[in-house]
Nucleic acid binder design. Structure first.
Lengths: 210, 210
DNA sequence: ACCCTTGTGTGACCAAGGTTACACCCCCGG
DNA sequence: CCGGGGGTGTAACCTTGGTCACACAAGGGT
């Protein structure tokens, strides 16, 4: 575990901080599809990604879902800081996009390290910046793109985050992520296939146009 | 100016920091409708709002606009920090919603105060948190609400930020903010009027249902 | 080999909202 | 007092995407 910490965070944090993280951090594994954090959950730990990928979802009161963005190793969930300061409850859902290893740090440490380590402050600010940018991109997507473009972008993003141009999923799953219906996704996928941008097979899709 | 600083930021920042801010800050006035910061602008100052209100807009490459949120006195533009760390260029446009007074702080100071003042760090994190929450709300609006609801929400938000249930604007302006067309806004406003939620007059709208 | 579950394809239809075109009204300036 | 520009109302039409219904196909278990 210390290896992976060193590997993904070694160039960000100074030695003593890495030691502290390793000391207080609780290792956790999440298998693909499992819910790591749900909307309304109280937040007591902040996750650092060591391995794998996570997708962050938003849900409204009718249960409609929307994918916000993916997190990869080296990332953390800036939303969590946010929540530590505010309502203390999660505003989002985090689901393991594939098998994932996390290091859970008690939120109390955040404050302490904030005063103690310059690199931690920088890390927090960087995370906020990255997350802000991702959220902005999400807004752009929703505001300015049509469903067909959103779909293609989603497939490309998903391929990137899994390092595999072959996406194992169903039309229904995609429909949930994009907050639309299965029929619409089937329709548009067909269109994208005719345009030569994807290849469809049962339960998996190959993205040609990456 | 020092009065307003004390008034709106006095309870956040300690005395010495207030002094420093007053010392290096450049006072600036922006009259209603003027562009305070544009997309692509290099960022060298961070604005603190002393008086008035600002609206933050996003634009795509086709020139389509979308209002992200409003800022009021006591707020700052978290996007600006973001930009200070990243591309150095503004990702958004800021327009004075009404006559506004700003205090422009050189971005170099941010780093310095970050190490020096605990209250400044807290302020920056709080700002990020608030902005994050607002952006999330924007996403919700786009993803889950229909145009009629978005319109009503927009009018209510605008009324709040201007402390006036009577909104001076045109249908075209609203259409720009919501990234739709004037015709659609006229149509929906008529509907809202019939439902007793607003009253329409030439060049101004009264929000009944606040 | 048969069923059953899960995943897909498709036609028909509907609703929201975008587009075009044009009439009209208010108000201000000459 | 009349001409013109900005603001608004509305009909007609189109496109996108959401809904419903149902057929069919692939693969796994018994």
């Amino acid at each position: 575990m210390r290896d992976k910490l060193q590997q993904h965070y070694g160039y960000i944090f100074e030695g003593p901080l890495l030691d502290e993280i390793a000391q207080v951090g609780i290792q956790k594994k999440a298998s693909q599809g499992s819910v790591i954090m749900n909307i309304g959950d109280p937040i007591s730990y902040m996750p650092l990604l060591l391995e794998g990928a996570i997708k962050i979802l938003r849900e409204d009161d009718q249960g409609d879902e929307l994918l916000l963005y993916f997190l990869e190793k080296g990332d953390t969930c800036a939303m969590t800081f946010s929540c530590c300061m505010g309502h203390q409850k999660s505003e989002i859902r985090a689901v393991a996009e594939r098998d994932t290893e996390l290091l859970m740090v008690p939120v109390g440490q955040m404050e302490v390290w904030m005063g103690k380590y310059r690199s931690w402050r920088q890390f927090i600010l960087d995370s906020y910046h990255t997350r802000m940018t991702e959220l902005l991109e999400t807004v752009d997507t929703l505001a300015f793109m049509r469903m067909e473009e959103r779909l293609l972008k989603h497939l490309q993003d998903k391929a990137k985050v899994n390092h595999d141009d072959c996406i194992v999923t169903t039309h229904q799953e995609i429909a949930y992520d994009l907050n639309t219906s299965r029929v619409v996704i089937s329709r548009l996928l067909k269109k994208l296939e005719k345009e030569g941008k994807v290849e469809m097979h049962r339960s998996h899709i190959k993205v040609v146009d990456l």
